[in-house]
Design a protein around this nucleic acid. Structure first.
Lengths: 347, 347
DNA sequence: TTTAGCACTCCATATTATAGATTGCTAATC
DNA sequence: GATTAGCAATCTATAATATGGAGTGCTAAA
């Protein structure tokens, strides 16, 4: 479906105006303000047509128009202009990004907080899907006489650890053996592979110690299948938006935030950039999520999602995301994840 | 301030009724329902007096009464009867608590989720204040050539770990030395002690390696001073309560949830049990928090807080808390946190 | 093709009226 | 002296009605 140039300008103007005012946009209100050199009557005709084609909606017969899901979709895909950030915003972001970080997790937190602050929307972040990552090393460490910590290091620099408990004492020699066997078999493999087949393989390798292997495999499997870490900031910000005043939308919004699986599904896509516009069918009517894969110095730090009303300021959100990502990549020396390119010791 | 027996019964009836109906309670509505053998006129007289003494309030001149903060306070402190849980609730709780857990953190999560499900209120949990805990062991593990993981085990069985990065390679021998030195000095000490004086002590012990010690101390200090883990469940549940419909209270409520420091301050008290009733002064008007120190098998697993409207069902909340705690303590064998107090730093 | 003009629709708000709930007080009763 | 019936007074909540204004769609002229 293509639109002629004037229709596009009008649709763009309506969406912008609606994002600004949160009120149905009338034909008259566009004249003058958006440099359309035609009369309100002409705009009315065009609006009627845009409505017929499904880009606009009316709240009642004599009201102005609001964008439909399809209208937003078109706007986001074709009509979006990036906004220049204000000097204050730039300053604020830069000041936030300057803090030293030791783990990529921290960097994601800082970015998430900053985005929420600057955009005034609720922001979530999940770490990259663990199952898609390759194991670079597994290390078992004895803690107490019946407890082990397993530390898994991935090639992307993510570190995951878990505690494993046993019914009887274990000794360092056994731990050393575990280290050798697990690393031999699993180094370079995808994390998702730690599953039944490998369990059986390792058990056969160490058949004299099934009661040692089993809890380990169980616990590691659990760790991998765990929900990825989800970090959330600014849940209350949503309530700043008038459309949440009624309570119904607020409730649906908070319910959404409680459903980690759902958020993960949306964030875990392969796009670098995605705008997910809620509608009746997908159960997210009136809500939108902008997702952004935060890649810094070639490393996937996870996906960030900004959740707000469908009428959210997409331009601003996207501008902020891009700016932050650009800044993070500027200082390419930010040691992240592996101890090799590192720098942050005192000394 | 003491109240005679009938006034108590009336106050109790009013609070119960208000919790049930969320509407100002009239003198007439109590008759019959609460076994007060007097007329509504008598109740009216008593109510007028209770209002004069500050236990009740009116929304307007000819409305029924609602409890004041002082009224709730008295109710919670003196008039609260525990409720019997329904069979369904008991079954549900038991089914939830049966899942095997490996770390106390998981147990807290399960308890928190269950409480939120059963009470229908928002529930938060924080782990016990790290600074008040004693170190049982510190362990450094080499990960890669320039990266160390520090694992701190406390006597209460909490395990904290952090990553430390270095500018240059370190070897296993150095790590062994670190293990000895740190354990010698810190075993049995409070976590809060890891601070400047000890930094200097350790530095003098290992003065040949300042560039090794400094990042470790920095990172561990950071770990300890980190906000304690805060786990939150059912933020959207609050919105089920009609008093949140207006939006104002909902916003204040969500704002509260975003302020970890504030929640921590409230939860981090020394009481086993506490009901925090919001009022004008403390900025939590119309909100209440029930806090409960969850001690299982003698171990402090942290504090759980149930946040809801002042008109929350205290009886139920407290009954659920006590029941869950009782069940957790029943199965005293739930090996938690310790791998059998012994230790074994074999190499 | 565009636009001025206008009847028409519908909302939002204010106004008024009405019914009902509840109190406080008074005077009667136990 | 404590309790209670009875009742006027108060205030809310709801409905019914009226009014002004914003915005559209359509028609006919430019």
């Amino acid at each position: 479906m293509e639109l002629d140039s004037r229709k596009k300008r009008i649709l763009q103007a309506i969406v912008n105006e609606y994002i600004d005012t949160i009120e149905p946009v009338s034909s008259g209100s566009l004249i003058g303000k958006y440099g359309l050199d035609c009369s309100s009557a002409t705009v009315r005709n065009e609006m009627a047509e845009l409505e017929r084609e499904g880009f606009l909606e009316k709240t009642h017969t004599s009201s102005g128009r609001i964008p439909s899901s399809k209208g937003y979709r078109f706007y986001v895909d074709k009509l979006l202009n990036e906004k220049n950030l204000t000097l204050n915003e730039v300053r604020y972001i830069n000041s936030k990004l300057q803090s030293k970080v030791n783990e990529m997790e921290e960097l994601t937190k800082i970015a998430t907080n900053t985005i929420s602050e600057v955009t005034h929307y609720t922001t979530v972040a999940i770490e990259p899907n663990a199952k898609k990552q390759k194991i670079s090393e597994i290390k078992f460490v004895l803690i107490g006489s019946r407890m082990l910590m397993a530390i898994i290091l991935t090639e992307a620099g993510i570190i995951k650890e878990t505690i494993i408990k046993f019914d009887r004492d274990i000794n360092q020699e056994q731990v050393d053996t575990l280290n050798v066997i697990f690393n031999n078999k699993l180094k370079g493999q995808y994390l998702s592979l730690i599953d039944l087949p490998i369990e059986q393989y390792i058990m056969s390798e160490m058949s004299y110690r099934v009661e040692l292997i089993k809890p380990i495999i169980n616990q590691i499997t659990k760790l991998i299948n765990d929900e990825s870490n989800l970090y959330l900031k600014g849940a209350n910000r949503a309530l700043d938006n008038p459309e949440f005043k009624t309570g119904d939308l607020a409730k649906r919004f908070l319910g959404l935030l409680d459903r980690r699986d759902f958020i993960e599904d949306i964030l875990d896509n392969d796009e670098d950039f995605n705008v997910y516009i809620g509608n009746e069918e997908n159960g997210l009517k009136d809500l939108s999520i902008v997702t952004f894969k935060n890649i810094v110095a070639g490393k996937d730090l996870g996906t960030i999602g900004i959740i707000g009303p469908t009428r959210m300021d997409y331009s601003k959100v996207i501008s902020v995301l891009k700016y932050i990502n650009k800044e993070l990549n500027k200082d390419i020396n930010r040691s992240l994840g592996d101890g090799k390119e590192g720098n942050n010791s005192g000394g």
